[in-house]
Write a protein that binds this DNA or RNA. Sequence first.
DNA 1: GACGTATACTTGAGGACGCAATCAACTATA
DNA 2: TATAGTTGATTGCGTCCTCAAGTATACGTC
Lengths: 141, 141
Amino acid sequence: MRFLRAHAATTRELGARLEADHGLTMSDYDVLIQLYFAEGHAMRRVDIARQVLLTASGITRLLDGLERCGLVAKKACASDARVSYAVLTEEGVRKVEAARDTHLADVEELFGSQFSPEERVQLGELLGRLPLAHTAEQCET
Amino acid sequence: MRFLRAHAATTRELGARLEADHGLTMSDYDVLIQLYFAEGHAMRRVDIARQVLLTASGITRLLDGLERCGLVAKKACASDARVSYAVLTEEGVRKVEAARDTHLADVEELFGSQFSPEERVQLGELLGRLPLAHTAEQCET
DNA sequence: GACGTATACTTGAGGACGCAATCAACTATA
DNA sequence: TATAGTTGATTGCGTCCTCAAGTATACGTC
């Protein structure tokens, strides 16, 4: 129960701030960050979906939005005509860097500040045991 | 990050099973359980909203659905004409009890089984520190 | 005892996202 | 090179849920 409630309350507040400060949803931000740390700021859509725990269709629509905002662009793949990469634009990079600062501060305030350094690693370890099904690991934050 | 991913993966799977086995969403179940443990199996809608971390309007619509299924009923309040209680019906009680068994087993399998008894209390303690804003506590599971 | 404010609930509009179906393109087998 | 199966991406449709606005009732104050 605590897990559910804590998640709902925390993400709601975090999402509201992100929206207010940068006009991004948590999912938007999540995808942008993945791209930011990807090689060449580009990723295949399937891989984004797997990282972010959305379905492929969710990614398509989410990227549509980010493209309309000029934050990402499509790029064809030379070796496989089926895949289209999502690439961060110049503006997208700037946006991520701007959003990251305030978002990390928000996370720290609402989440991190509740725990000591040891508790953080412990919490991470415990939660890390949960089966993520078919998701890769990796990540900062 | 782990917190977010763990939540997404776990609730998705849990929700899918609940839907498959009983035709309930997690929110449905959540509300039904709150009612089940409430005095007289009845609660004011505002209080449900606060417990469950949905907005009042979300509760209205969710209860609409549960009413159509015959699981809950409305009841007026004698002392305050504004409030309408949501009450579990006979069938609702049966439904909760049926769903509860399989759901608790699912939770145990996907979540609880990853942790020792001590780790459970610790995890609960850590997550309990997060600010739930304007939410009451109480609960089993 | 009328008036302003707060509270309980509902409703309309819209957004986010999943599922299932579909298409196109790649890969493997014959 | 025809055939079958797989995979990446998109789209139609439906559901859940939020926000903002609206209605009805309660309550405090002068």
